[in-house]
Amino acid sequence: MSDMDEMDDGSGIVKKFMFLNRKAPHGTVYALEGLEVVLITAAFDQDVSMVFTDDGVYQLMKGIDTKGIEVKDFSKTYRALEGYDIEKLYVDQVSLDARGLTEDDLIVDVTVLSNDEMANLMAEQDVVISF
């Protein structure tokens, strides 16, 4: 770990990376895998945005209790992102509305974007990685 953390590739190029999360948390492994990739790549000092649309907004639900299905509750891990300097979390308003959710239902502080704002944010990225 330490080797990677202190690695400096010397290029100094910072790209805009978007991690786009569109899947509900437990039905598939995408949400957990996506979160792990974000935590690992946080060491590379890029301009990272984490975006939640469609069923991906369900990843951030408060009050998750996974004891009954015997899987890890990784919803708490989203709260660690700040410590990894991943501070740009965006949630799609349209997706919240379609699921009867509001910002208050979410476990972390996020910026909620309108359809047009989300479209523009996506369009300006150098790299979009989907989960």
């Binding site: 948390p25 437990h26 369900y58 639900m61 998750i64 009954g68 299905i69 919803s75």
Partner: peptide, 8 residues
């Protein structure tokens, strides 16, 4: 129920 709980 357990699936509802696991999803908040």
């Amino acid at each position: 129920g357990p699936d509802l709980a696991a999803r908040g």
